[in-house]
Computed example of a mutant assay.
Amino acid sequence: MKDLQNFVSDYTKDKKHLHLAIGIIREGDIEYHSFCNSKKKSMVPPENMLFEIGSITKVFTSILLLEMEREKLVSPDDIVGKYVQNVDNDYLNKITLKNLATHTSGLPILATNHILSKNRSNPYSMYTEEDLTAFLSNADFTDKIGSFEYSNIGVGLLGNILCKVSRSTYDELLQKYITTPLKMNETAVMLNSEQNDRFLNGHASSGKRVPHWDLSIYEGAGGIKSSVSDLSLFVQANLNDDNPLASTLEKSHLPMWIGNSNLYFGWGEDKVLDKGILWHNGGSAGFNSYLAFNKELRVGIVLLSNYSFFSNTLMDYYFAQLIKLITKKEPSQGTMIDFTGKKIFEAIISSEKSLK
């Protein structure tokens, strides 16, 4: 793509440790670009460097739900209480796996007994299954069922349930249902030694290096690490009807009317120019990610950065509040990668529309 530097210059400036990897995807082609401000050069191709992808993981968890439905192991309409049998709480019999996947269960962004100060640099690692059970024993958000409220604990619970039903780890589910069929060999929660060598250090918006996060119970909500190469293959599969996951991915593209809005299994909905897109973003203390695609024009984009972000958009606002709770300080304002991604995607869609 011509003039890509002009689109990313605002984002790349003043980030001396930055690695920014971009995939521009068409139905039959993937084009990679990268921008690096670090003086320390790497022998690893930028498209194969590994990043934390944060909440983009939630899309994968929803796809796992639909794949396990296809095998009749679970149904999105199953009540949560069916799978949390060591807890006696009628609220869990009022919400479904679909509610967890679409953020309409009423559950808050974090469990109310999640004490972030236990480990400020790795805030999810200390939250155990016993903590989750204790939270679910007393949880009651009945009055919010059906309304959208972004919930990390909700999708984390969904991932936990899918693992228990299948008697598998989250990585085993990923390999069986998504990464092996789509030949995504660089996507996992737990990395092997070779993958770890390609796993970038993350940086806060100030440039300070920050520890990698361990998601524990929340791994289905944000635990995946991946590369722009693998995520581009994933986007390409969403554009192409000729792949092993085509029917499942197609189901994830269908809107469901819940409460007073259209919602999707895993995806968010937006418009670029006059074209509808499905998208998701993600962030941790040291990484920022964004992917989106338009099925009509068969184009998509992936951006991965090893710098964190803070903003006031819906999903990212909650992340900024999480950091505020951890550090007891107002978060510094970084540049969100979504804005850069949308600018590039707008140019791509404009170009594709002119060719039609």
Rank of each mutant, 00 (worst) to 15 (best):
A188T: 05
Y170I: 03
E47I: 12
I53H: 03
S351T: 15
N138I: 14
E27P: 00
G146Q: 10
T179C: 08
I22C: 01
P244R: 09
T142C: 05
F293D: 03
K343V: 11
P123F: 12
K82A: 04
E194W: 07
E346G: 10
N306P: 02
Q321V: 09
C163W: 06
N152V: 02
N262R: 11
F51V: 11
R120K: 15
K251P: 04
K164S: 04
S252H: 08
L65N: 08
E194M: 01
A134G: 08
D214G: 02
K164C: 10
E129N: 15
Q236P: 01
E250P: 00
Y91S: 00
N240L: 09
D270G: 11
N185L: 14
I79Q: 10
P108M: 04
E47M: 10
L215E: 00
I95L: 13
Y91H: 03
K176M: 07
D241K: 13
G283S: 06
S75V: 12
K329C: 08
V210P: 07
S226H: 01
S351Y: 14
E250H: 13
V189S: 10
T112F: 00
A292C: 13
H114R: 00
T142P: 06
L64E: 01
E250A: 15
E219F: 07
Q85D: 14
L132M: 10
K98I: 08
P255Q: 02
H17T: 09
M256F: 08
F287L: 03
L263Q: 05
E352F: 06
G334S: 07
T179F: 11
S206A: 04
N201F: 13
V80T: 13
H17S: 09
T179G: 06
E330S: 08
R120Q: 14
E31H: 15
L231K: 03
D88K: 15
I224R: 06
I161L: 04
N196G: 14
G300H: 06
L173V: 05
L158S: 04
V44N: 06
F35W: 12
M190D: 15
Q321S: 14
G156L: 09
A237F: 04
L162K: 01
L182M: 04
N281S: 04
G259E: 10
L191K: 06
G341E: 01
A221C: 10
Y150H: 04
T335H: 06
G207F: 11
V165W: 10
G146I: 12
Q175S: 15
T133F: 02
I24R: 09
G268D: 14
N312L: 13
A246M: 12
K208Y: 07
K118A: 03
E52V: 01
V165P: 05
V189Y: 00
G266Y: 04
N37E: 11
V302M: 00
H203L: 03
P255W: 11
N48A: 07
D316K: 05
S147Y: 00
K82D: 06
N86T: 11
F310I: 14
I56P: 08
V299Q: 13
L65K: 05
N93G: 03
K98Q: 13
N89W: 04
L107S: 10
L239W: 00
I30V: 15
L97S: 11
A221Q: 07
N93V: 01
L303G: 02
E346W: 09
D316R: 03
K16Y: 14
E186L: 12
G266Q: 09
Y83W: 11
L116R: 12
S125A: 15
M68K: 02
I258Q: 02
